[in-house]
Amino acid sequence: HDTTVHINGLRIEVHGASEEILKWIEEAARRGVEAEEIKRWVEEALK
């Protein structure tokens, strides 16, 4: 999927993410993980 995830006011563009990654992002956000940190993880995961 190409999608934009909104976390604590930060937009994260996610290209080619699976449902699993999207669920993981939402879970991390709920746990209060910094949005910048999530963004870094997602970029690494999608390389």
Rank of each mutant, 00 (worst) to 15 (best):
1 H>S: 14
1 H>L: 13
1 H>F: 13
2 D>P: 15
2 D>F: 15
2 D>Q: 15
3 T>I: 15
3 T>V: 15
3 T>E: 13
3 T>W: 11
3 T>P: 08
3 T>M: 13
4 T>W: 09
4 T>E: 11
4 T>N: 11
4 T>G: 09
4 T>F: 13
5 V>Q: 05
5 V>K: 04
5 V>G: 04
5 V>P: 04
5 V>Y: 06
5 V>R: 02
6 H>D: 11
6 H>F: 11
6 H>I: 15
7 I>Q: 03
7 I>L: 05
7 I>H: 04
7 I>Y: 05
8 N>T: 04
8 N>F: 01
8 N>V: 06
8 N>L: 05
9 G>Y: 01
9 G>D: 05
9 G>N: 04
9 G>Q: 02
10 L>R: 00
10 L>I: 14
10 L>A: 05
10 L>Y: 09
11 R>P: 10
11 R>V: 15
12 I>L: 09
12 I>E: 02
12 I>Y: 07
12 I>C: 01
12 I>F: 10
12 I>A: 03
13 E>V: 06
13 E>C: 10
13 E>T: 06
14 V>I: 13
14 V>E: 02
14 V>C: 03
14 V>Q: 02
14 V>N: 02
15 H>M: 12
15 H>L: 14
15 H>F: 14
16 G>W: 08
16 G>T: 07
16 G>Q: 07
16 G>N: 10
16 G>E: 05
16 G>H: 08
16 G>L: 08
17 A>W: 08
17 A>G: 08
17 A>S: 08
17 A>K: 05
18 S>T: 15
18 S>F: 07
18 S>H: 07
18 S>I: 07
19 E>G: 07
19 E>A: 12
19 E>P: 15
19 E>R: 10
20 E>P: 04
20 E>W: 15
20 E>Q: 11
20 E>M: 11
21 I>T: 04
21 I>Q: 03
21 I>D: 01
21 I>N: 00
22 L>N: 03
22 L>K: 04
22 L>Q: 04
22 L>M: 12
23 K>V: 09
23 K>T: 08
23 K>H: 09
24 W>R: 01
24 W>Y: 09
24 W>M: 06
25 I>C: 04
25 I>D: 00
25 I>P: 00
25 I>F: 02
25 I>T: 01
25 I>L: 06
25 I>Q: 01
25 I>A: 03
26 E>D: 08
26 E>C: 08
26 E>F: 13
26 E>M: 10
26 E>I: 10
26 E>V: 11
27 E>P: 00
27 E>K: 03
27 E>A: 08
27 E>F: 03
27 E>C: 04
27 E>M: 04
27 E>S: 05
28 A>F: 08
28 A>W: 10
28 A>I: 03
29 A>P: 01
29 A>H: 11
29 A>L: 15
29 A>V: 15
30 R>G: 14
30 R>I: 14
30 R>D: 12
30 R>S: 15
30 R>A: 15
30 R>K: 15
30 R>L: 15
31 R>E: 11
31 R>V: 11
31 R>N: 15
31 R>Y: 09
31 R>G: 08
31 R>L: 14
31 R>W: 10
31 R>P: 01
32 G>H: 04
32 G>P: 02
32 G>R: 01
32 G>C: 01
32 G>M: 02
32 G>W: 02
32 G>E: 04
32 G>L: 03
33 V>G: 02
33 V>E: 08
33 V>R: 02
33 V>N: 02
33 V>D: 06
33 V>Y: 08
33 V>A: 05
34 E>K: 12
34 E>L: 08
34 E>P: 15
34 E>M: 09
35 A>G: 06
35 A>Q: 05
36 E>L: 12
36 E>F: 08
36 E>H: 11
36 E>Q: 10
37 E>N: 05
37 E>H: 08
37 E>G: 02
37 E>M: 08
38 I>C: 01
38 I>K: 00
38 I>S: 00
38 I>M: 03
38 I>Y: 01
38 I>N: 00
39 K>E: 05
39 K>D: 02
39 K>M: 14
39 K>T: 05
40 R>D: 03
40 R>C: 03
40 R>T: 06
40 R>N: 07
40 R>L: 09
40 R>F: 06
41 W>F: 13
41 W>T: 05
41 W>K: 05
41 W>G: 01
41 W>H: 08
41 W>C: 06
41 W>R: 05
42 V>D: 00
42 V>Q: 01
42 V>L: 09
42 V>P: 00
42 V>M: 04
42 V>F: 04
42 V>I: 10
43 E>S: 08
44 E>D: 12
44 E>Q: 11
44 E>H: 10
44 E>K: 08
45 A>T: 10
45 A>Q: 14
45 A>N: 09
45 A>K: 08
46 L>H: 02
46 L>K: 03
46 L>N: 05
46 L>A: 03
46 L>R: 03
46 L>E: 02
46 L>M: 12
46 L>D: 01
47 K>M: 12
47 K>L: 10
47 K>C: 06
47 K>N: 12
47 K>G: 06
47 K>D: 06
